[in-house]
Every structure is written in structure tokens, then in C-alpha cells.
Amino acid sequence: MSSRACWQTFPPGRSTVSTRVRVLQVFLLVLATLGIVAGAMNGEVRTVITKAINVCLQCIGIG
């Protein structure tokens, strides 16, 4: 009996794919975390909060 996760639909061998995808998952997880930290250090949080605490005129159709 075999159980297949959907990311294992990639050819070829299941175990190889599974390891590759696991590596990709961890890589993307680390990349996203680094992005959050780097962006925060770069002042991006200020841009987000400045936009979010003021009424967005474009969102409500008058800007």
C-alpha cells in the first residue's frame, strides 16, 4: 500500500522527489523569513503601516 502526497506527483522516484521537495520547502521557508527580516530592516514596515493606518482612498473608490 502506498500513500502519495500531492507534491509527490512530480516524476521520477517518490523518495527522491520527496527529499527534493522537502529541501525546497525548507529553502522557501528560510527565504521568506529572511525576506521578512531584511524588509523590516529596510524600512518596509513603515510603508505598510503608513498606508494601513490612513483611510485608503483608492480602496473606497474616491482616490
Binding site: 522557501l28 521557508l29 527565504l31 521568506a32 521578512i36 531584511a38 524588509g39 529596510n42 498606508k51
Partner: peptide, 27 residues
Amino acid sequence: GSLQAVFNRASDRISMYVAGLIGLLGI
């Protein structure tokens, strides 16, 4: 909205924080 707000600012342009947050949820 946040992603566009970052792209809108001439000083930012590249989003790492918002893209990272979306990516984290996505992954």
C-alpha cells in the same frame, strides 16, 4: 494592498517584508 503600497513608493520598489509574509503563509 500592502504589496502595492511598497511598489508605489519610489524609495522601496522591491518588496521583501510583505512578499516574505505572503510567502511564509503560502509555503
